Simulated assay, not measured.
Amino acid sequence: MKQLNICIDIDGTITDPYYYLDISNRYFNKNITPKQVTQYSLDKVYGVDEEEFDLFYKKHKFDLHENQAIRSDAKKILDKLAVDNNLYFVSARDNSMKLLTITYLQKNKIPYDALYLLGSHYKLEKAKELSCDFFIEDSYDNALYLADNGFKVVLLDTYYNRGHERDNIFRAQNWQEVWNIIEENALEKKVV
């Protein structure tokens, strides 16, 4: 029997959080660097309205997600976590991305037990349904909402989620720290 149910976001969590900069910079004729991405809403980062950014994303979403680099040590730690735990990918990607996402995970030999593409950043109900013990995330708003509802969240550090500390949110600088946090806190497992 597996010990923990671990929910994991994909974009910016197992992947490089700034993977989109090259394509976005060309499209919007900007030169945004990772250090300038200090908020999660990319329309605000690029100084465009939300509709314009949504048009860009719809046009380029497959190119953006097909060849994202994996974060350092993510695969190694996911392999270790998969031995004794259930790994559930829970992403805001929409269902049109399902085949690309499955292919991407297979190509990179990323272990997982199930994949859920919600088409929304609202992940609370899925976390409840999966009896999530830890949720690995990069969005502070998602982390905050999950933590406020009793879930332990490991927040992978980025420029756009800094400066926020909260109960039930554990900040990790890298995937080795994700492993350490889960190992240290697994004994206190509390299913919501």
Rank of each mutant, 00 (worst) to 15 (best):
M1F: 14
Q3P: 02
I6Q: 09
D9T: 08
I10V: 12
I10R: 06
G12R: 08
P17D: 02
P17M: 05
Y18F: 12
Y20H: 05
L21H: 11
L21F: 09
S24W: 01
R26Y: 13
R26H: 15
R26P: 10
F28I: 03
I32T: 05
K35V: 12
V37H: 07
Y40D: 08
Y40S: 11
S41N: 14
L42T: 06
V45S: 06
V45I: 04
E50Q: 09
E50V: 05
E50S: 13
E52V: 02
L55A: 14
F56N: 03
Y57L: 05
Y57R: 03
H60N: 11
K61S: 00
F62H: 13
D63M: 12
E66P: 06
E66C: 08
R71V: 10
S72F: 15
A74S: 06
A74Q: 05
K75A: 02
K75V: 06
K75N: 05
D79S: 13
K80I: 07
K80P: 00
N85D: 07
Y88P: 02
F89L: 08
V90G: 08
A92D: 01
K98R: 15
L99N: 07
L99F: 00
L99A: 09
L100K: 10
L100C: 12
T101K: 02
T103N: 14
T103M: 04
Y104V: 03
L105I: 03
L105R: 07
Q106A: 14
K107R: 15
K107S: 13
Y112P: 11
L118E: 00
G119M: 01
L124S: 09
A127W: 00
E129T: 11
L130C: 10
S131R: 15
C132P: 05
F135G: 05
I136S: 03
I136D: 02
D138A: 02
S139V: 07
L144R: 10
L144I: 10
Y145L: 15
L146C: 11
A147M: 06
D148S: 14
D148T: 01
N149S: 14
N149F: 12
G150P: 08
F151P: 08
V154N: 09
L156R: 00
Y160L: 01
E165K: 13
D167W: 08
N168F: 12
N168P: 02
N168D: 14
I169M: 09
F170C: 04
Q173G: 15
N174W: 00
W175H: 06
W175Q: 04
V178G: 01
N180P: 03
I182M: 03
N185T: 06
N185M: 08
E188C: 11
E188N: 14
K189T: 09
V191D: 06
